[in-house]
Computed example of a mutant assay.
Amino acid sequence: MTPSPWPLRPGETLLWEGAPAPGFHQRGKRLFLMVFGLPFLLIGIAVFFTGLHQLTQAASSSEAGLAVFFAAFGLPFLGLGGFLVFGPLVEARTASRYIRYALSTRAAYVLRTGPFPSLKVYPILPATALELEPGRLAGSVWLHARLERDSDGDLGTTRSGFENIADAEKVFLMIRELQDKAG
């Protein structure tokens, strides 16, 4: 039997375990990013291959250097465009593989494995702000929100919780029951 990845405290009972539902969620947001990234990808491809083509036609070392610079100039556009166009597709396939959720009688756990492992624990208290965001195929239960400043200094809300789970309503009601018992 494999050991549980959840660091439960004495007297704490595991009520639910799950993972994000596989698939392409938040279609509007994802499609917008993909369409926004497409020109970057196409420009990056065009600039990179134009630079490579010029490299094969270069008659002097200065022309070759300019062609290499031109090809290298296209790489950031190619990378950004590829990230925006293909990133949502990769995330749709891998999120359910690398993220696990658990709900206990005292806390909510979010375990991330893979390239950037982490374990986040959110205590369930009567004052815990709780939000249910239903979706077409899966919903999200948000347990924690905080204001953060972005690189421009603007305030934005960052939410944490169980994202894109199939039984979001059930988990939401379980957390409400825990809050009622604690309060």
Rank of each mutant, 00 (worst) to 15 (best):
W142D: 12
L119C: 01
F116E: 04
E12A: 03
A46W: 13
L38N: 05
L38W: 11
A72P: 03
L42I: 13
G51V: 08
A67F: 02
E169R: 14
G114E: 00
V68P: 05
W6F: 00
I99P: 01
T157F: 11
P117V: 05
V35M: 14
K170I: 00
S4F: 04
D152I: 04
A127Y: 11
I165N: 02
G139S: 03
A64L: 06
L14A: 01
A71R: 00
K120N: 00
V47C: 12
F116W: 13
E17A: 02
E148M: 13
G82Q: 02
G135E: 11
L173R: 15
T13I: 01
L103F: 14
S61V: 06
P5S: 07
A95D: 14
H53E: 10
A67M: 04
A182L: 14
G23Q: 07
Q26V: 14
E131K: 14
N164T: 13
G65R: 09
E91Q: 00
T113N: 03
G114H: 09
T2K: 11
Y122N: 14
M1R: 09
L143M: 07
P39V: 13
Q57T: 01
F162R: 06
T56D: 08
T113L: 02
N164L: 05
G74S: 02
G11A: 06
K181L: 15
T105E: 12
L130A: 12
E163K: 13
H144S: 09
L111E: 04
T50P: 10
I45Y: 14
P88K: 01
L78M: 13
V121M: 06
G23W: 12
E133Y: 07
T158W: 09
Y122R: 12
A95R: 04
R136I: 06
P123N: 06
P22W: 05
G81E: 03
G139F: 10
E177C: 07
S140R: 02
A127I: 05
L41Y: 15
I165P: 05
G161N: 10
A67Q: 00
G87H: 08
P126M: 11
W6I: 01
I175M: 11
A92K: 06
H53F: 15
G156A: 11
R93W: 10
F49W: 14
R106I: 08
E12S: 02
A64Y: 01
